[in-house]
Design a protein around this nucleic acid. Structure first.
Lengths: 384, 384
DNA sequence: GGCTTTTGTCAATATATGGAACAAAGTTAT
DNA sequence: ATAACTTTGTTCCATATATTGACAAAAGCC
């Protein structure tokens, strides 16, 4: 991006941009990278963020694993580590363990000092302003625990905490399939079903951080019971756990499927079903198609209500690809309004298992750049 | 509000507030109104917006009527006029007619000059930035017609256009039951069912202005056909038209109801059903209760997805009050997540048929104050 | 080669904001 | 009642921030 382009985009004068950019160049955050393409006049000087000027850390806390990445200022992953972790063992156990993983990565990449900020995604409702979770269903003992404070006092660097699905949305919108989109929904289909919302360019949390709970949409009034106490929730009909359960029942019922062979060795997972479907197993395809139909009917409501430009299907189960996406599209088409639908693309997410952690990186990058801009760059002409 | 209070709220110094307020007082927009209550020191000088410093106009274009109000700078309605209007006759017919109504009101209230801005609500999806509607179902011929431009060139004043349900949300949040709430949904139950969303303090429109289409949520997969082409839409099951239709069928089926007497004279309306229900008619109560159950199940999805602090039930049918609200609350309770629900109040709207038009007034007021702040107040010391 | 266009910089200037000191007007403690 | 403390609102000044307009550099266009 050139100075003139920035000035036009932000609606400020070129002179202003020049002075600010000078500061950023002096601090090493930005550098000039040759000449761009002319638009009928002098060729602009292309400005690039200098990826080497700092590092940020992203953390994705899952129910049973934690994924930590180190990224440069462009969001490129330089190193990563994954470790088993039972989130149910509480913050006193988990947080130091996570911190150890982060410190291990940092120590083999230039030490603690290189980290400018850290972003953390957790599988529960987050009050982002305070950096705590609020009555999370799958994180017993974490309610109100000062997660952000823990990391900030440990490292003296800004720490940002947010929900995993929300960060998935942010990750995809920053680095993935949602670049440039200001209104998108990221659907995370894993064991359960979550949803992160980016509305008018901002992550949307709601009043207590529980926005995006599409997993407990009622899709069938007389459906199976859900852990939440209701019946026929989307999650109970089309989540990874539900798909696996249905596969098990199909095998028990003696339906002809390649899944039966797997089941003799170990428990069936949704991933097995996805793989079998792609390999052509009809029963598996039917299972995914049913799940897709239910997801699609919930998505139709989401699309009617929020009129997003893009819906991204992510999470492990989404790796099934078209076997899941086609019935989703079909169900959405049947149930949502023409006008809204025409404006909404439905696609698979691009970042796979890195979506959330890259959202955490994006959050950390934001904070890193902001704090850089706060610090006045050195005044007066340097040397000479 | 005192200067010190403003300074604290906005996070700026008292000195800054003083200079700005001086300008506003000089231009007559704000005036000092005696002393407030002390908090242990000097008593603050209470500042009030001077309602007499200008006027704004709000317009609510309905399917068959247009409602125009003149309001002072505090949003108090000074005069109003309503006139039949067939929105289907297109913009070339409707807009001049609306303008005439506005001008009639203005001419008996000090002339055209007193109006500082005008806000307009229309019953279709709006692209607010451009001031046009986009493929509205019930406004044939209006697609892309430059509504804002029409009013701005006619009067040389800022005109703002938005959707009627969105303005209902804005109206209730500014003047009604939603004051102070940054996240609320306003449900407008009239002939159809619409919804306006205020998210994080901003009206939410989506990418093409169709956000809030809760009326076409599927609430019963095998329900009656809807005008939109789908089956079992909320609007087709619980909208005003649907309630009237069901009442008619109940009478035909010979059910014992006081509605039968009305039906001999003219067609039953949803309002008749609401009145009969409040008077104790069991069949009418059942009809409303059914409708409420369906609305509640759609609202549960909305609450799960958006985690609003407040849901307001407005529109004509909502005047039924608790006969409708009780089943809504019950259905929501059954179907939505505890955590989200605990944070969400469900109430009837406070502004009745003025909700939308007061939202239009709020929009106009915003614009009026902004343009006042843009104009530099006179520099240098006046007199002496 | 001259003309126009666009980019980036510089100096002068306008505007906005904050800090400190202070007077005014109150409350609270003695 | 008096003194001490609080809070409010103002004034003056320093500083930060952005804009304007002029201008040189570097390109395209004729």
């Amino acid at each position: 991006m050139s100075r003139a382009e920035i000035a036009q985009t932000l609606g400020v004068s070129r002179a202003t941009v020049s002075t600010i950019v000078d500061g950023l160049i002096a601090s090493g955050l930005v550098s000039e990278r040759g000449a761009g393409v002319s638009r009928g006049g002098r060729r602009p000087i292309v400005l690039k963020v200098n990826p080497e000027a700092g590092r940020v850390v992203g953390v994705d806390v899952g129910a049973s694993h934690v994924l930590v990445v180190l990224a440069d200022l462009c969001g490129k992953i330089l190193d990563e580590a994954e470790q088993p972790l039972d989130v149910a063992s509480g913050p006193e156990v988990c947080l130091p363990l996570i911190a150890d993983v982060v410190e291990a990565i940092l120590s083999r990449n230039g030490g603690l000092g290189v980290m400018q900020a850290v972003g953390v995604g957790v599988p529960g409702p987050v009050i982002a302003a305070r950096g705590v979770v609020s009555s999370p269903p799958i994180m017993p003992g974490w309610d109100g625990y000062p997660i952000r404070e823990f990391f900030e006092t440990r490292w003296g660097r800004p720490a940002l905490v947010d929900n995993d699905a929300d960060l998935g949305a942010l990750g995809e919108s920053t680095f993935g399939a949602g670049r440039g989109e200001t209104n998108l929904a990221y659907i995370k289909i894993g064991t359960g079903i979550g949803c992160g919302l980016l509305l008018d360019g901002q992550l949307y949390h709601g009043v207590v951080g529980t926005a995006g709970e599409i997993g407990h949409f009622t899709v069938s009034q007389d459906g199976p019971p859900c852990k939440c106490g209701n019946y026929g929730c989307l999650e109970a009909m089309a989540g990874g756990r539900a798909i696996a359960q249905r596969a098990y029942l199909a095998i028990q019922a003696g339906q002809p499927t390649t899944l039966a062979a797997i089941n003799h060795g170990r428990q069936i997972t949704a991933r097995d079903v996805a793989q079998a479907a792609q390999a052509g197993d009809a029963v598996s395809q039917q299972l995914l198609s049913d799940a897709g139909r239910h997801i699609g009917s919930a998505l139709a409501s989401l699309i009617n209500l929020l009129n997003p430009g893009l819906v991204l299907i992510g999470g492990r189960v989404a790796e099934a690809g078209e076997s899941l996406l086609a019935p989703i599209r079909e169900a959405v088409q049947r149930r949502s309004l023409r006008a809204s639908l025409r404006a909404t693309r439905i696609q698979t997410a691009a970042l796979g298992r890195h979506a959330t952690v890259l959202g955490a990186v994006a959050l950390a990058l934001d904070s890193a750049f902001c704090s850089q801009l706060q610090q006045r760059p050195a005044r007066g002409r340097a040397r000479s």
